[in-house]
Every structure is written in structure tokens, then in C-alpha cells.
Design a protein around this nucleic acid. Structure first.
Lengths: 344, 344
DNA sequence: CTGAAAGCGCTTACAG
DNA sequence: CTGAAAGCGCTTACAG
């Protein structure tokens, strides 16, 4: 009953097993595997060989308990009710991808949590010993969630935000103002004259408002006036874009370009324009924002302003994990020219 | 130097702190927080109140070390060189979203790892005490990665695969054969007659091959012949779709429909058709596979076969975490009618 | 129903 | 350079 070979559930192999088999003390095993310089090359070799043979790997729970670290970063992605779960906002997943890569490059694992405001919000991964820092991704829409996380940031530290609407907290953002300028100037340079802005500003400060101000400033320099939709329906971004475009075109048929504050809004604009038979980019030009790869699929492919996601991910990590001093950081944006703006 | 109030780094509060303050033994704190029935309601209340007051949460490293569990599932997403990192295959992220939701519903956290074949493959999250099970997501393309993970599955258990090309392992797949049938029959029902298949089969068994066989069988029932591309270039799915469509149309201009084994392939087909001025769906019909939400953005929006991702996620979790006995499982697919097939 | 104690598997001073 | 030992913060038999 005790020596049946494969009946017994394979017991966890520990550093003690390795030690015994290698004829050294357990602490030496620990040092050897940690690559400590104070263990002789010969000893290290022997230990590593045995570890390999036994299939030993250090238990992160135990080592983390001892060191106080976890070597993982938690990423919470906020989902509004308007985002049909679970895919939510695809842009967030692109950012998530960049964070996973940047984390991995630093030797960190990534814990992902999708959270909605109606569900239970939770950001105390550090306190629970599950992460060394937490990144929260959302937009100004998730207002009640943000107040929770802002609160948490005050008491906790080790948080970094993307898309948070308030200024007195650690965040990384796109150069939204610059992006708004670039998009608008590009449209102006290509000969469009009446450029409308698409994006609800009602939620107050936030990325859209910053993009709007870049748009407005670029327009002002050339003596042009901003054009805004009178209102936005609830719902997903795409239908908001659709309705905003319709609202504005119906009031002023001479509008010949749109700067949409997000790619998903732009897809809605595209839909409306198709519906009324306006040719993009000949009759009407469009520039979106986010650099979403889905923009290559639309027809025409969407010209867009893309933030440097790799840089954003690194900055977020520095703030969340290293507790970097700088409280806020902007990442550069660049224009990705596809085909929703006519060539020169 | 010792009693400066806020200079000292907030020490971790432990169950001992709560115990002291609540006037009970530490073990009672542990029981109270675990919701053990053997602690008096009055005691539990008192303990919970103190815990709340002190902001105490149990350290998962410590409790996991004791219990042997981690209450987290690891998800590794395979990325080929052809997927421009980091966003990779958007379909995987949709599946990932479903897994996060299903995991969360079961009280599990989700650890995500993006891995490429050139990089270091790693799936021993269970052994390292970082997860209770591991889900691997990929496609037949990632052949060398799969041999690694298959190996691992033999020695380890607690793995579940999506997209693995071999049969002797735990996996969850779409009802690919059924999906191929549905797509093809749908096209036939809508009056298309020469239906071509888009999707490289060179890699041997795998999801595409299964979809092809469903397509072939549906055709055979109506006395029609399969049509295949002569070859596929390396590169991303979209350009493969583009080239395959061109290849087949150039050889036979009377082809009037395509069943693409993935949505991304279908987007490439759409591109080519647009380029040569064929109207979709009037002249040519297209059905994709995957149910990607990006398919709502194309023009026309893509009709597609969608697997039940929620079910897939649950099955994957059962296999990875519970070690469910059933080795393989198919999830249902359904046709999402958008606009790339003409109405009746 | 509650307490005292052992032990999960590590890392890291402390000696030598 | 290596060993012996303490301790990270829990859970859970074992007593009472």
C-alpha cells in the first residue's frame, strides 16, 4: 500500500530533495538556483544538474512570502455596460498586449482582471500578495470605478492609470492635445475645409476633451471654427459616431471631414457616410484616434493617430512597480496614414 | 527615530495584528475570515470589524503555500512570427476575455503569458506555484510550441489546449466540421454555385482541415466540387486570403463564393474582391469563421461562423483546473448573419 | 467554539 | 564557500 509506484500522487519536489540528492545543504540549493556569486561553480553545476533531473523549480509562493515580492503586475481592465462583454474595448487589449510584453521583458508575470462597475471592483492585489503593482485601464466613462481606484491610490501607492479623468494621480496618457492637432492639421493640409469633431465631451475632463482642444487649436490657427454634435446617445462608440455624424451633416451638409476622438467612433462615422453615399476620402475625409489594428479592415482603411503603446506600457510599469517619482507621463503619438484621407 | 508617524513604511498588517486587537487567537481570525462555520457569529463579526478597520486581507502567498492552491489559472497565448506583436491574433484576445470572465465567476484569477516560439516557452506555472492549471491557446501553425506543451501535458497534467493540432491530448475545439457545413450550406441556400475554400491546409490536421472537411461534405451532398488555392504565401492571414482569392479567381472567374477558414483570411478575400470590382454580396458571397467582432467593421460586414466562447472557456477551465476526465470537447458554433451573403 | 502549535517551501542573516 | 536556523503569513489537525 505504500510502495505502489505510480499510484501515489507525485509529491512536490522541494529544495530539500535536491539538496539531499546533491549532497549539500538546502540553503546551498537556494543560492545556486538564485545564481548567487558566493557559490562555487562546481557546486552550482552539480545542484543545477540534480534540479534538472528532478524537475525542480522554486515555488513562487514560498519565495515570494520570504522576499516580499511577487514579480507580477496586475492589470485591471474596466468595462462599461455599453461594451458588450467580454471583448470590451479592443484597444484595451492592444494595450494589454504591450504591457504583457514589457512585463515579460522585465521578468514579470501579468495578472489580468476584467472589472465592471456593477461588479465588485478590486485593486488590492499588492496587499493580497498577488502583485507588486497594479495598472488600471479605462476611460472617463468609468467614473465611479475611478473614484474607487483614486481612493485606493491615496492609501496604497503602486498604482498607475491609463485613461483616468482626474489629474492628481499617477497616470500615463497619449499626447492627446498633440494628437488632435496632428489629425486636424493633416486634414487641413489635404484640402478639407469644414472639419467636425466626433466624441462626447460631457463627462468632463478626459482624453477626449484633450483631443478636442488640440483640434480646436489647430483650427484656430487657420481661422476655422470647431463643429460639434449637439448630443450623443448612450450606447457603444460606433453608434455614437454614427449618430453624431448624422446630427452634424443634417445641420450642415457642407462638412467635408471628421476628426473622431476614437477609432470606434470613426467606424460609426464611416457607416453613416456610406449610408448616405458620400465617398471617403474623396468627398469626406476621416481621421480616427487609437491606431487600432481593426482600422486596416474598414473600407477604406482608417487613417488614425496612434499612441506609442510600447512606451506607454513601460511607463505604466515603472509607475506601478518601481513607484517612479514622476506622477504623470505623456507618450508620443504618430499619424498612421491609411486611406480615409485623400492623398496630396 | 522610532516614533516618527508617517516616515515609517506602512508595515504589512497580518492576522496576528487583527487577533491581538480583537482579543482572539490568530487561528480564530483565520477561521473567521475563511467563513468557517465553527466560529460563533458574534466572534466572526468582531473579527471582521477589526479586519476592516485595519485594512487586513489575507496574503495569498501564505495561504496558498499552506493549502497548496493558488486559485489562479494561467493562460498562455502563442504568437507566431507572422503575427505582428503584440496584438497578435485578435480572436485569441476574444477567447481570453471569455476565459477571464469564466475564471472570475469561479473565483479564480487569470495569469496571462504571451509566448512565441523563438522566445522561451514555459508552461510550468503549476509547478512554480503560480497557477492551479494552464490553458494554452494557439493554432496548428505553432507546431514546435505544441510539441513542447504536449510533452508537458504528459508529465504534468492540468493543461488544456485550444487549437492544438494533435488528438491525443486534452483540448477544446469548435465544432469545425459542423461549422464548415453550416457556412457552405448557407452559401448554397442563397444561390451561390461555385464555392471556393480559403485556408492553408499544409500544416496537416488542425482546425482548418476540419473546417475544410465540413465544407467538402456539404458540397458533396449537393453534387458540387471543392475548389482550393494552389498554394499559400507565408505571411499574415489577411494577405494569405488575398492571394488565395486571386489565385483561384484568376484560374476560374466563375467562382461566386468563398468560405474562409478564418475571419482574417476573409478580410483578405474582401480586399481582393474590392480591388477587382466584384460586388459583395451581389456578385460574390463570403462566409468567415471565428465570429470576430472586427467583422462588423468591414464593408460589407462579414457573415461568419462563431464558436460559443463562453462555453469554450468553461470547458477549458474544467479541464485545466478540475482535471476533468473528458479528454476532448467540442463547442457549438452558430452562424452570425451580417452582410457578406445576399439575402434570400 | 477557541487556542497552541506545527508546517507549507523558500531566503537570508549569522557563524564558521 | 557552505551549513544551521529563523521566519515570511497563513491553515489546519489536535486538544480542550
Amino acid at each position: 500500500m505504500s510502495s505502489q509506484p505510480s499510484e501515489t500522487k507525485a509529491a512536490r519536489v522541494t529544495s530539500f530533495d535536491v539538496a539531499e540528492r546533491a549532497g549539500v545543504n538546502q540553503s546551498t540549493v537556494s543560492r545556486a538556483l538564485a545564481g548567487s556569486p558566493q557559490v562555487t561553480p562546481a557546486t552550482r553545476e552539480r545542484v543545477l544538474a540534480v534540479a534538472r533531473e528532478l524537475g525542480y523549480t522554486v515555488d513562487q509562493r514560498a519565495s515570494g512570502l520570504r522576499t516580499g515580492r511577487t514579480d507580477t503586475v496586475a492589470v485591471v481592465i474596466l468595462q462599461g455596460p455599453e461594451d458588450k462583454a467580454p471583448s470590451g474595448n479592443p484597444f484595451y487589449f492592444e494595450l494589454l498586449g504591450s504591457i504583457c510584453e514589457a512585463a515579460s521583458a522585465r521578468g514579470l508575470e501579468t495578472l489580468v482582471s476584467l472589472q465592471s462597475e456593477e461588479g465588485r471592483l478590486s485593486g488590492d492585489y499588492v496587499k493580497r500578495g498577488q502583485a507588486d503593482g497594479t495598472i488600471v485601464i479605462g476611460s472617463a466613462r468609468h467614473s465611479s470605478a475611478w473614484t474607487y481606484f483614486q481612493q485606493l491610490q491615496r492609501s496604497t501607492g503602486n498604482l498607475a492609470f491609463w485613461g483616468s479623468p482626474f489629474d492628481d494621480a499617477r497616470w500615463v496618457r497619449s499626447d492627446n492635445h498633440g494628437g488632435g492637432r496632428i489629425a486636424t492639421s493633416h486634414l487641413l493640409d489635404r484640402g478639407y475645409r469644414k472639419i467636425a469633431f466626433v466624441g462626447p465631451l460631457g463627462t468632463g475632463p478626459g482624453q477626449f476633451a484633450e483631443r478636442f482642444s488640440g483640434y480646436r487649436d489647430a483650427l484656430a490657427e487657420r481661422g476655422a471654427q470647431p463643429i460639434e454634435a449637439s448630443s450623443y446617445p448612450d450606447g457603444d462608440r460606433k453608434s455614437q459616431g454614427y449618430h453624431a455624424a448624422r446630427d452634424m451633416i443634417e445641420r450642415d451638409g457642407s462638412i467635408d471631414a471628421f476628426f473622431a476622438a476614437s477609432d470606434r467612433l470613426a467606424f460609426g462615422v464611416l457607416d453613416y457616410l456610406k449610408e448616405i453615399g458620400r465617398d471617403v476620402p474623396e468627398d469626406v475625409g476621416i481621421v480616427g484616434f487609437d491606431g487600432m489594428s481593426a482600422g486596416t479592415i474598414s473600407s477604406p482603411p482608417l487613417t488614425t493617430v496612434a499612441p506609442d503603446l510600447a512606451k506607454a506600457a513601460e511607463a505604466l510599469l515603472r509607475m506601478a512597480i518601481d513607484g517612479e517619482a514622476s506622477v504623470t507621463q505623456r507618450v508620443k503619438v504618430r499619424l498612421i496614414e491609411r486611406a480615409s484621407v485623400r492623398p496630396t
